[in-house]
């Protein structure tokens, strides 16, 4: 029983890890050229930064929602 719960939490951590890799790579792709002055247009720079912040916000929201879903729908479904 306990092993099963541990395995489910391990799956959750794996999902969070994949999301972290995807989010960090996406944010870096969007924002780094702006930080390194590689984008000449100010409008494009602003859009890239806004998109980067949006990806970060979305990642945080999805992370919390998945954890809640895991607790109530996966781990505690028998209670």
């Amino acid at each position: 029983m306990i092993m099963r719960i541990t395995l489910y939490v391990i799956v959750l951590v794996t999902v969070v890890w994949v999301l972290f890799l995807a989010a960090s790579a996406t944010i870096s792709f969007l924002v780094l050229p702006v930080i390194n002055n590689e984008v000449s247009s100010a409008a494009v720079s602003i859009v890239r930064v806004i998109l980067g912040v949006a990806v970060f916000g979305l990642w945080v929201y999805v992370w919390q929602r998945i954890a809640e879903l895991w607790l109530y729908r996966v781990l505690a479904r028998r209670r």
Binding site: I2, I5, T6, V9, E68, L71, L75, A76, R79
Partner: peptide, 11 residues
């Protein structure tokens, strides 16, 4: 509060 211990102690 949603904590790691709360997840592990669900059963």
């Amino acid at each position: 509060p949603l904590t790691l211990l709360r997840m592990f102690s669900v059963e």
